[in-house]
Design a protein around this nucleic acid. Sequence first.
DNA 1: TTTGCTTATTGCAATATTACGATAAATATT
DNA 2: AATATTTATCGTAATATTGCAATAAGCAAA
Lengths: 109, 109
Amino acid sequence: MGASKIDHFSPEHVEMSAIMKALGHPARLAILEHLLKVDSCVCGDIVDVIPLSQPTISQHLKELKTVALIKGTVEGNSVCYCLNENIIEKLFTYIGNIKSTLVAKSSYC
Amino acid sequence: MGASKIDHFSPEHVEMSAIMKALGHPARLAILEHLLKVDSCVCGDIVDVIPLSQPTISQHLKELKTVALIKGTVEGNSVCYCLNENIIEKLFTYIGNIKSTLVAKSSYC
DNA sequence: TTTGCTTATTGCAATATTACGATAAATATT
DNA sequence: AATATTTATCGTAATATTGCAATAAGCAAA
């Protein structure tokens, strides 16, 4: 096969894993942090900052957009990208739940 | 090409993205949550709980082990898997930093 | 030591990802 | 209108991932 059998898993697992997967590439984490660092959302400069070609960056941005980790709004000639706080929050909450359940549990091996 | 040019990115981005990538599959999230739910670490039953074959589960476990999200200790016949709190904590901290920076920033588009 | 049980590995097919050159599409400027 | 600028898409090659049947490897009893 090759494709993951996502129909066998819960919607929450499918959604969360898609978000994690989108963050599962150093370039996409670098894009995320760049968007965080830069004050304005004007974002053609991502290509200048990250050592990958313009088409590749565009593709990575698309993947981040697909899971709604970022939003992009057209602004004249260029496109302004910025982070979507909601999705980051969702991810934070999910990991936080795992963490606290784990701490409460304290059965190790 | 095809392989990601990880040598172009910071060690932190490489490490964090590897952890995220390991969680970027519904089966691996399901494994994680199962380990969290079950009180004992005795874990041959993952195969019974998740609708994938034994070799596939074994492979997913290996990926989680590679990034140290889980630990596995041999226990007689079987292997006992459990979560590694440190890595979960690390992930939580990383996302938390992004989140709080984002909140403090409040420049949207 | 043979048998059974549990987990890992191998080999392979199907599919997905990564990366980029070439090119298109859309808007700005001249 | 012609040109420049910016971003997206297409096409393609290289590599990685996903999944499983078959099989190996390791240990526990009998």
